[in-house]
Amino acid sequence: MKEFKHEELVEATHNYSKSHLIGKGSHGCIYKATLKKGQTVAIKTPSLGLCKLQDTSKIENEAHILSSISRNRFLVNMLGTNRNSSGHMVLVMEHMSGGVLHDLLHLTTPGSSPPSWCRRAKMAIQIARAVEFLHESKPLIIHRDIKSENILFDSKSNARLADFGLAVCISNYDSLSQLVDSVSLPAGTIGYLDPSYTTPCKLSTKNDVFSFGVVLLEIISGTKAIDVSRAPASIVEWSIQLKEENRIMEICDRRVNMPQHMKCAIRHMLVLAMQCVSSDEELRPSMTEVVTKMERFKVSIWLDMIKCLVNIQRRKKDRFKYVQHHHR
């Protein structure tokens, strides 16, 4: 992994000025910077509060996780690291210019409009592939904080999974029950956090599967994971209730008209999302199973679209024949 010079990063961010600040979270700050070679990057530093507390474990953990895996087109990859003047870790990351999934779905970006159903299906598959890559890595990686705020888009509108501050690297899957000492407490974000993940020894890939299921419901519904104006406020409980009442398609975002050729695939995606958020961990699919099913949905979308186009052409021909016949 490349070691960047402290002076280069200071110059590229104008000494980490507010004008370069593009993101802020509980673990750190993100600055947009253009390096001397013209490459635009994102520079992640630990937050001032954490530095004062001498707690930079999250950013150190992220550096450790990302340096242990190969670059992947479904992740926001790390390009290198640096130590600032205080000796704290700084990460140089790929810059994602396409925005954040949370903002896109909930229209917090001025002038934005809800994503099309085709784009939603595409991003869902890309996110699933990102999580699958982590779960299939050697050593295995559990993200522990999959949520719409941690899914960014690159310049080509491809979805990428970000923020590995809470991720856990496991060299031996069979040793999960011995992780009590190395994983302090269950971690994640309310609304996305698996209710089954109550103690460190309950950590498993199925926790990420649950969180992915919540994101999938969020993508399809266009509503937030927790919304106090909704009853129930939890997107999981609300969706399960609609499914039990045989109203599963009412989960779908009504702001965007759904093409006929998408309806079958979206219904299948909703059923898959329900499986992912099942209270019974044994019923949740693996991420490899999720990706396999979603790829089938993609094929069915194309087939249904072709059928729709054929039917449209057939109706046009029939209409033309009808007009020709009545004008003779």
Rank of each mutant, 00 (worst) to 15 (best):
H268V: 02
I240S: 11
L216M: 15
M258Y: 05
R230F: 08
I240L: 12
E250M: 12
S221I: 06
S239E: 07
S239D: 09
R247A: 15
M269E: 02
K224Y: 05
S221G: 15
V236P: 06
I226Q: 13
R255S: 09
P259N: 07
G213K: 02
I220T: 12
I248L: 15
L242N: 08
V256D: 04
H268P: 00
I219S: 05
R254L: 07
A265Q: 01
V209P: 00
N257G: 10
I226E: 11
Q241G: 14
S204D: 10
T223Y: 10
K224L: 11
S229M: 11
Q241W: 08
N257Q: 09
I219C: 06
R230Y: 06
T223K: 15
N207M: 00
N207E: 00
G213Q: 05
E218R: 02
M249C: 13
P232N: 13
Q260C: 07
A265F: 01
C201T: 13
E244W: 12
K224E: 12
H261Q: 04
L217W: 05
F212E: 02
C201L: 00
I248R: 07
I220P: 06
S239I: 05
Q241F: 11
I251F: 07
P232Y: 11
R230C: 13
I226F: 04
V228S: 14
R267C: 03
S239G: 08
H261V: 03
K224F: 02
D227E: 14
P232V: 11
H268S: 12
K263H: 10
R230E: 10
N246I: 09
S229E: 14
P259Y: 04
A265I: 01
K243H: 14
D208F: 00
Q260D: 07
V236S: 07
L203N: 00
